[in-house]
Amino acid sequence: MASVAVPAAAAPAKNRDRFRFLTGAAGLTAPLALLLIVAVLAQQAWPAMTKFSWPFLVGREWDPVHIHFGALPYIYSTVVSSALALLVAVPVGIGVAIFLAEPGQAGVRGAIGIGVELLAAVPSVVYGLWALFVMGPWVFKNLETPISDRLGWIPIFAGPPRSAAMFTAGLILAVMILPTLASISRDVIRAVPGGLREASVALGATWWETTWRVILPAARAGIIGAVVLALGRALGETIAVTMTIGNRNQISASLFEPAYSLAAVIANEFTEATGPLHSAALVELGLVLIAVTLTVNLLALGLLRLSGLAARPA
């Protein structure tokens, strides 16, 4: 060991350690919170998990009176209503983002941008009310009824349509996730270097060709990130879905029929649970909801890694 004292370096090293400890601890809170939530839920759900085991996930019946619980219709409704929401919101959201990210007319774009972001500030229960009294009836009259009259032979459009149905829930979810999608995508598209646009235009590409072939691919990773975030919100959304999805425990191919999502069942039944097993089963639904959300997120992350997009410099 060299005996040269370096007191000047020792103090920063100590400080650095302290700093690393602080930031490390702060960084651990998020995964720790997740672990704790899962642990507590698992503990609460334990009676149901041991009693019903795996059939809980594939069973189709939910009968608190006869203590018979199966979660499949709820899982199905949750996934389908969210997928429907993405199907509607992704193209619209990216379209809005492209428009907002364009240079020029900063005033107009700024105002519209703020409008889109304010959509995120509307409480879900207000969305639910609006969907229940305004959008639902309108959709029933102007979309569901004519579509099922003409295309009713396609199973997903089979009638008779209802105002409170999977379709309505999917649409209101689409409206609710639109701001997340649009504002993140806008920021990502704006972050694409202007030089890429110039290079493409200089090669004789039109605005559309430049956007479609250069800008969007360059922003791909970030846009997928926005979709994942939006999907997370859609899967877990409770009150607006509860108010619009019709709350009927069934798996129907038709989007125009009522359904019942995981979050909606929990919200509706928890305060009126008829016994400890019923409560445990509801907590287990919560666990399933977390699992669905996590799976979807991990799949999306994996997809990003696979396509080599996650760590690509612009």
Binding site: G195, A199, S200, A202, L203, G204, A314
Partner: peptide, 17 residues
């Protein structure tokens, strides 16, 4: 058509993704 007859190279090399 003109822009295809007149190529341009920029300050920074922007490779398309």
């Amino acid at each position: 058509e003109l822009r295809q007859r007149v190529g341009m190279v920029f300050q920074r090399p922007y490779s398309f993704p």
